[in-house]
């Protein structure tokens, strides 16, 4: 009964694996197939594999997939255009032929009566498995342990990034900064902080140089790229408004002396 419910679900989910564009969706569809499989294992009198399927496959391996997806970007989706000519059609034909051959071939044969695992699982499925695993398959078991260790070390080696040169110390950094200053005139100190205004956290507003011009270096490049930098002149009205509210004479305050020239300049022009 469970089979006839789960089988179409699994086939649909597996087919979805072929057609969804986002990798995350594919991972979720695969999770559906795997959990369904776990249920089928339980139906097929394999409670241990049921648990392992859930824990190892769905729990560990699929999570690993999701982690890697996260690392390399969730939106790294396939483009629709096929790059290899005829690959999709050929793959479809080959898949159809293979599937039909397998299905038709299997439909032709009869497997006879089912023996069932009642006898084999007598005394508990896990104990029975352990009996077989640590007697007849003990060498294979040991070999898989070696394989797992090798895989673990291999993964570490592959994921490890080798440092090719020694780490740069503070003295070397300082020397390089001044070397750059000497050769290209690049400013050796930290970049200026953005302008700070009371009504605003103002990371998007450039600081003003002593002559009243804006310093572009004081604003994050990301904000500049987004085009969300406010210019100091745009604040002029606000300042006037604030001054008005405070009751200070605009003409007598030193802050406004530079506002006429407070237009945005590039750093080069400022220099």
């Amino acid at each position: 009964m469970a089979f006839w419910i789960l089988a179409p679900l699994m086939v649909v989910a597996a087919l979805g694996l072929l057609f969804v564009r986002k990798a995350v969706h594919a991972a979720l569809l695969l999770a559906v197939v795997m959990i369904s499989l776990a249920v089928l294992y339980a139906v097929l009198e394999a409670p241990f594999l049921f648990a392992v399927q859930i824990i190892v496959y769905t729990g560990a391996i699929l999570m690993l997939f999701l982690f890697v997806l996260m690392l390399i970007g969730v939106d790294a989706s396939d483009s629709v255009v096929e790059t290899i000519r005829g690959q999709r059609a050929m793959a479809a034909v080959a898949g159809l032929v293979l599937g039909s051959v397998l299905v038709i071939g299997l439909a032709q044969i009869s497997l006879g009566t089912v023996v069932g695992l009642d006898e084999a699982n007598n005394g508990g499925n896990i104990e029975a498995l352990a009996n077989v695993l640590f007697s007849r398959y003990v060498f294979a078991f040991e070999a898989t342990s070696a394989l797992l260790i090798t895989a673990a070390i291999g993964a570490m080696v592959l994921a490890h990034r080798e440092r090719l040169e020694p780490k740069e110390g503070q003295a070397a950094l300082a020397a390089r900064r001044f070397q750059d200053y000497a050769t290209s005139g690049k400013h050796p100190g930290p970049l200026p902080a953005p302008g700070v205004y009371a009504r605003h956290n103002a990371v998007d507003t450039p600081a003003l140089l002593p002559d009243g011009t804006a310093s572009e270096a004081s604003v994050s490049r990301v904000l500049a790229a987004r085009g969300t930098v406010r210019s100091a002149p745009a604040m002029v009205d606000d300042i006037t408004e604030v001054q008005r509210q405070l009751g200070v004479d605009a003409a007598s305050t030193p802050e406004t002396s530079g506002k006429a020239g407070a237009t945005a300049h590039t750093e080069e022009e400022a220099r």
């Binding site: 597996a14 990798a23 096929e82 690959q87 898949g95 293979l98």
Partner: peptide, 22 residues
């Protein structure tokens, strides 16, 4: 039969999908 259908679908997926993770 279900097993072979899933296997075939997996095959075709390997042949058509380009995202290495998929």
């Amino acid at each position: 039969v279900l097993s072979s259908i899933l296997f075939t679908i997996g095959c075709v997926g390997v042949l058509t999908r380009r995202n290495a993770i998929v």
